[in-house]
């Protein structure tokens, strides 16, 4: 963008912020530097400038200038809506906010993290990091789709995207995006799948290409009771079942870490391990070979035995 346009936008912002009353278009064209040419081109310039300032998040208030003659609208920016104001902040709070922004350095929100830090540092409040324990937070989300999805959720706007299916096919999906959350570094998009008429979960790293707004569908209403943390807990990571497994001494650490009860034995210890998905549990048990034996539930024992027999059969 040319410097002249930047200059004009800054001058417009300053004038609309400084004024105590609404400025009419003719006052703006007459007094603010940069509006040149025919009235028509000035009008077009001003319309674009208003849009640009709104895109930057600056709210321009439109109102009448004269209570008796309200034929010409006037414009102003309220300092209250323009300025950073989330109440008085202490040095400790500034330190917490700075750490929160730092977590995004180098990740998907890097640019916004930097501008948020600039704003925090402009408040003139000394940050008090001494009050915090030594923490170096880091969020590793780098997907270019992260912001577009978060924006679509905030705008309750339907989206569409290509998704990698279980058999590596690419499917076009239509979704009302409800929430975005991560577990163990993996990000999940949860929403109402219009094609399947139910809530579905998608992994961000399985989305191919860009997530786009689905302009053919109307905006949706966010269900009031939707909570991403609760959803992920109850649908993906609900350890509703428990397996009783024998684990060889000094082996099976991945399972031991999850165990809620361990009875020590000679060669094998007996552990109670909660799990949410039987197939994933079977995979984990198979990985450990003869170091882990399922005792119960019976169906888990059966699928493990079947899989071992298949392995022998396929490779024999």
């Amino acid at each position: 963008m040319a410097s002249r346009k930047t200059e004009r936008l800054i001058n417009l912002t300053i004038a609309l912020l400084a004024t105590k009353r609404y400025l009419t278009k003719s006052e703006i064209f007459k007094n603010i530097e940069g509006y040149e040419g025919s009235l028509d081109s000035k009008e077009r310039m001003f319309e674009r400038d208003k849009d640009d300032l709104r895109t930057l998040g600056i709210e321009i208030e439109v109102g009448g200038t004269d209570p008796l003659f309200d034929d010409e609208p006037g414009y102003r920016i309220r300092p209250e809506s323009y300025s950073f104001n989330i109440g008085a902040l202490t040095g400790t709070e500034i330190a917490l906010l700075s750490l929160a922004a730092e977590a995004w350095r180098g990740a998907a929100l890097d640019f916004s993290a930097q501008s948020a830090l600039v704003k925090l540092n402009s408040l003139g409040i000394e940050s008090d990091f001494e009050a915090l324990p030594a923490l170096a937070p880091k969020l590793t989300q780098e997907s270019a789709n992260f912001l577009p999805i978060a924006a679509a959720i905030a705008d309750t706007s339907p989206v569409r995207f290509s998704y990698l299916s279980k058999s590596l096919q690419t499917n076009l999906r239509h979704l009302l995006p409800y929430g975005l959350g991560s577990r163990s570094g993996i990000w999940y998009l949860v929403g109402f799948d219009n094609d399947r008429s139910e809530l579905r979960t998608f992994r961000l790293d399985r989305i191919l290409g860009e997530v786009e707004r689905d302009t053919s569908a109307p905006n949706f209403t966010m269900p009031l009771d939707f909570n991403i943390v609760q959803f992920l807990d109850s649908h993906l990571f609900d350890p509703s079942e428990q397996a009783l497994v024998s684990i060889r001494r000094d082996r099976g650490h991945a399972l031991r870490q999850r165990a809620i009860d361990t009875t020590l034995g000679d060669e094998f210890d007996l552990c109670v391990v909660p799990f949410s998905d039987a197939d994933r549990m079977r995979d984990l048990i198979l990985w450990h070979g003869d170091d882990v034996v399922v005792q119960s539930p019976e169906y888990l024992r059966t699928i493990v035995i079947t899989a071992l027999e298949t392995l022998v059969h396929v490779h024999g």
């Binding site: 300025s83 104001n85 906010l97 501008s115 408040l123």
Partner: peptide, 13 residues
Amino acid sequence: NPRALNREESLCL
């Protein structure tokens, strides 16, 4: 005065 946080910055924080 520093500008109000925009939506991306708020989300980030």
